[in-house]
Simulated scan of single mutants.
Amino acid sequence: MGSEHFDEKAADWDSDPDKVARARDVARAVAANVPFGADARLLEYGAGTGLVTQALLGRVGQVTLADSSPGMRAVAQQKIADGALPPDARVWDLDLEHQTAPPGRFDLIVSSLVLHHVRTLRPVLEGLVSMLEPGGHLCVADLDAEDGSFHGHRHDFDGHDGFDRGDLSRSLEAAGLTDVVISDCTTILREGRPYSVFLATARKPVD
């Protein structure tokens, strides 16, 4: 997925109260649907400015934010400098559609409204699974299948028009995950139209 669109919006991203509220909704759903301890190693993939990670602070341990947008990563780095994110937080330049997953294991991986921007889902899911500790959880918040109007204003959008829940469940299982559960998470209102967002949770089996 190209980063230019997000580079342009990064500086003002957190000024949108709807984005902040949505991140909190996702964090609440993650905390309510999967078990993890206060020492859990968290990776937020496609983290943007790290809003979901911020909403999970105090419930997790070491945090890593990965994003392909230089603009978003710069904002996240500034948050670390300002104290809005922990001083030991890591910020990675990572696009699993085109890069091999780096070494490292995480107990919890969260991705919020990212995967519908991905053209080829399989390498991304397999990369995320490779970084999960056995017994760890992947949590994906994303759009339910829609008619293409959500990104109708983007002439360059070439991702998915949301996801069919059954199809995504099968993709998660094919990537090596088990215990897949998909439930309602939140709603995005765009130009007066509601778009539903689900949370998919899945576990990496213990070897």
Rank of each mutant, 00 (worst) to 15 (best):
G152S: 06
R24F: 01
L56P: 04
V75W: 04
A74F: 03
S171N: 12
L138P: 04
R190M: 03
G83E: 15
D107M: 12
S15H: 11
P70Y: 00
A76N: 13
L132S: 12
P70E: 03
D179S: 07
A81N: 05
A11S: 11
V110N: 10
G127T: 04
R165G: 03
R73G: 02
H151L: 09
L96W: 01
G46T: 09
R190P: 00
T186Y: 00
T49R: 10
V34H: 04
G148Q: 12
G50N: 09
V129W: 05
I109A: 04
D67W: 01
W13C: 00
P87G: 09
S183T: 08
A21G: 01
R90E: 12
H5K: 15
A202W: 13
T100G: 07
T100A: 11
M131K: 09
D93C: 02
H153K: 14
L113H: 04
C185L: 00
N33S: 15
V129N: 06
A84T: 15
V52Q: 02
E146S: 01
D142M: 03
V206P: 12
P123G: 05
T178N: 08
L43E: 14
F6W: 14
G127C: 08
D184R: 09
L199N: 01
S111Q: 09
R190C: 04
S3Y: 01
K79R: 14
H160G: 14
T49I: 05
L51E: 15
V34Q: 03
D164Y: 05
G176M: 11
E146P: 05
R203Y: 10
